[in-house]
């Protein structure tokens, strides 16, 4: 069983780790989510979120932009950090359970309009 923490902003991955006020914590066993809950922080703080990740003993943390200082700290604490992720929560969880979630992933969101040059701006 692996435990994952996703920094949230609304229904999507928070673009900034240090400005995140909500986290989704889920336990995944054999590709299925066996437990999930949302944690709301009293205030946005990278330190609080790091503390939460360590005390919850998560294996993987998913977020958008994160400063190197916190990335290195979590890495030192043996937490896999998948950062620079863009996408809605459900798509990110699905990609993680499928084993396809990587740093810098941009996952499809509802209503993503195409670019003038035809690029949809979405990639796996």
């Amino acid at each position: 069983m692996r435990k994952i923490l996703i920094a949230l902003h609304g229904d999507e991955v928070s673009p900034r780790f240090d400005l995140t006020r909500e986290a989704w914590i889920g336990s995944i066993h054999e590709g299925q989510i066996v437990r999930r809950r949302n944690v709301v922080l009293p205030q946005a703080s990278a330190e609080s979120l790091c503390h939460l990740a360590v005390t919850e003993d998560v294996d993987t943390l998913v977020c958008g932009g994160m400063e190197d200082e916190f990335y290195q700290y979590l890495h030192w604490k043996r937490i896999d950090v998948i950062d620079n992720v863009i996408g809605p929560l459900e798509a990110v969880v699905q990609a993680y359970t499928d084993g396809t979630l990587t740093a810098g992933a941009v996952l499809p969101a509802q209503g993503g309009g195409p670019c003038p040059d035809g690029n949809t701006g979405t990639s796996a």
């Binding site: 673009p15 900034r16 946005a44 863009i86 993503g112 309009g113 701006g121």
Partner: peptide
């Protein structure tokens, strides 16, 4: 630019002001 196109601005620019 290819990755940024079509994404909400707060996911691309990620400034403190966005929040």
């Amino acid at each position: 630019v290819a990755t940024a196109c079509g994404l909400p601005c707060h996911q691309v620019i990620r400034s403190e002001r966005c929040f």
